[in-house]
């Protein structure tokens, strides 16, 4: 296949200092910044254009009924998962596939825990209390932004599961290539983590 003969799939390019996959990942993340940036801009614009009173007024911190406890726990879960992600990559760098896969598995498990908290301790109770997407613009945005972030988490889990399972065959033929892929997954994962770290104070803490 032509992919085999393409340069810089594994070795870094002399000018950018990145292999193609990593460069591509950075570009992808740049566009993700624009995507989430657009949502945050919308949040700010809608918040400041909302009427000061009446049904459509922006809910104050207390009116949101969002518990920072669950979200805080989730923040912690994601931060730990970022650490285990780095551990996975370091293990592979240290030529230890078994340990690398283990840490990948832990990361995926933590990510699933995050989702479980999010769904069972937040979404479902909120929805039943009447805080649905049509409750207010704030809750609309809350579901949209955290939902989109959640989709990114699911995407991350799928990628990790792939690399623990069938994707790990690559290790046998080209361990460096495999390690690079995990590094890219890690970059993505740190970004997902970072988005949450901005989402958390915006939605839960700020007034």
């Amino acid at each position: 296949m032509s992919a085999d003969v393409l340069p810089y799939t594994v070795k870094p390019h002399p000018i950018t200092g990145l292999y193609s996959g990593k460069f591509g990942m950075w570009l992808f993340l740049a566009s993700e910044v624009m995507l989430f940036g657009a949502f945050f801009s919308s949040y700010i614009l809608l918040k400041f254009s909302a009427p000061s009173e009446g049904a459509a007024a922006w809910p104050t911190h207390d009116e949101r009924h969002l518990s920072w406890v669950v979200a805080g726990a989730n923040t912690l879960v994601l931060i730990i998962s970022s650490v285990t992600m780095v551990m996975a990559w370091l293990s592979l760098k240290g030529n230890n596939l078994a340990k690398g896969r283990l840490f990948l598995g832990v990361t995926a498990a933590l990510a699933s825990l995050f989702l479980a908290f999010k769904i069972f301790l937040e979404y479902i109770p909120h929805w039943h209390e009447g805080y649905t997407t049509s409750h207010s613009v704030f809750f609309g945005l809350y579901y949209t932004m955290t939902g989109l972030h959640g989709l990114h988490v699911i995407g991350g889990i799928l990628v990790m599961v792939y690399f623990i399972g069938p994707g790990s065959k690559l290790w046998r033929s080209d361990p460096e290539y495999y390690t690079n892929r995990i590094e890219c997954t890690g970059l993505y994962w740190h970004f997902v983590d970072l988005v949450w770290i901005v989402l958390f104070p915006t939605l839960y803490l700020m007034n």
Binding site: S31, M34, F39, S42, T133, S134, V137, G140, T144, L148
Partner: peptide, 19 residues
């Protein structure tokens, strides 16, 4: 991406009852 964001928001306005 901003158009994608806008598209998602409009889609939700239409199907999920947001405004």
């Amino acid at each position: 991406p901003p158009l994608e964001a806008a598209g998602i928001l409009q889609l939700l306005d239409r199907v999920a009852g947001t405004s």
